[in-house]
């Protein structure tokens, strides 16, 4: 069967935090209090392990880790330049460079994936045309693309953005296809009897009805874009959160490696929030299907 693209559970990979039901008063306090002990314990074990140079399974030698306090200092330096070294204040060069790559790749992926997904979801001919290609390319991990991309595109921003576009594309197209397929038949009939035809139906009925699934796909896509960022910055771009991690590795500055990891995590989290904010402004409080 060639029509099973939409059955991939895209929603399963959506970040869960913003979807949590709003809590108030005691409930919220309880959530915060319950959320603290495990991370604090983690920091404590990290500190003790570093001090005692523990050897853990997988051959983890904790003696090679920086102390949590070193990482904090490294972070402060990266953000506000409290030392005076190669990494001071660098965040403000790296973050914009990385964010620009992520958002360009993500925007490009969205621009291609949403129209394609709408057409594939609504027209079986279009689906039959593109479905085999999507199934063929989807399982190829971005890592596997890197050598080929290096040869085809060379090093630099274009290669980096290409890899990000590629990674973000699939969840968005799959989410859009499944959303476009699930448009209630009744709404399509309503639109037709009111005089809507062709592209009008896609824009005025299919797109809004599929919006929740498209949004889910876009969130997964944006998340993947950040995941793939470090890899995409192995393409020899000089600045970026990922590039700096590699620089830190080359000069064996472990605290800076961890700082880079933290910054990418935070940037990924914040950009998901930003995306949700954009949608909230766009949809205001319009009730969407489901």
């Amino acid at each position: 069967m060639s029509t099973d693209v939409a059955t991939v559970p895209v929603a399963a990979a959506v970040p869960t935090a913003p979807a949590e039901p709003p809590r108030k008063g005691r409930g919220r306090l309880r959530t915060v209090l319950l959320g603290l002990p495990v991370p604090l314990l983690f920091l404590l074990v990290w500190h003790l392990g570093r001090a005692g140079e523990w050897e853990l399974p997988f051959g983890i030698r904790m003696g090679f880790l920086p102390y949590p306090t070193d990482v904090a200092a490294g972070l402060a330096n990266y953000v506000a330049g409290i030392r005076d070294d190669a990494f001071s204040n660098l965040l403000w060069e790296d973050l914009p460079a990385s964010a620009l790559r992520v958002f360009s790749g993500f925007a490009l992926a969205t621009l291609i994936a949403v129209p394609l997904g709408v057409l594939m979801g609504r027209f079986s001919t279009v689906n039959s045309l593109f479905d085999p290609m999507i199934n063929l390319f989807r399982p190829i991990p971005a890592t596997a693309w890197v050598p080929l991309v290096a040869l085809l595109i060379g090093y630099g921003d274009q290669a980096s953005i290409f890899l990000i576009t590629l990674s973000a594309f699939f969840p968005i197209v799959l989410g859009t296809i499944s959303g476009a397929r699930q448009v209630p038949e009744r709404l399509l009939e309503a639109a037709r009897m009111l005089g809507t035809t062709g592209v009008g139906t896609l824009l005025r009925v299919v797109l809004p009805a599929a919006a929740p699934a498209i949004v889910n796909g876009m969130r997964v896509g944006l998340g993947l874009a950040w995941v793939i960022l470090v890899l995409s910055e192995t393409t020899g771009v000089p600045t970026g959160l990922g590039s700096t991690i590699f620089l830190a590795r080359d000069v064996v500055q472990t605290d800076q490696i961890v700082v880079g990891m933290i910054c990418i995590a935070v940037a990924g989290f914040l950009s998901d929030r930003l995306l949700m904010l954009v949608f909230r402004v766009l949809f205001r409080d319009r009730p969407l299907i489901k």
């Binding site: 009744r186 709404l187 009939e189 309503a190 009897m193 809004p208 919006a211 009730p287 299907i289």
Partner: peptide, 12 residues
């Protein structure tokens, strides 16, 4: 014009 039993209004 068609009026359906289940209304068929655009929820958004």
């Amino acid at each position: 014009g068609v009026v359906f039993q289940d209304y068929g209004l655009f929820p958004w």
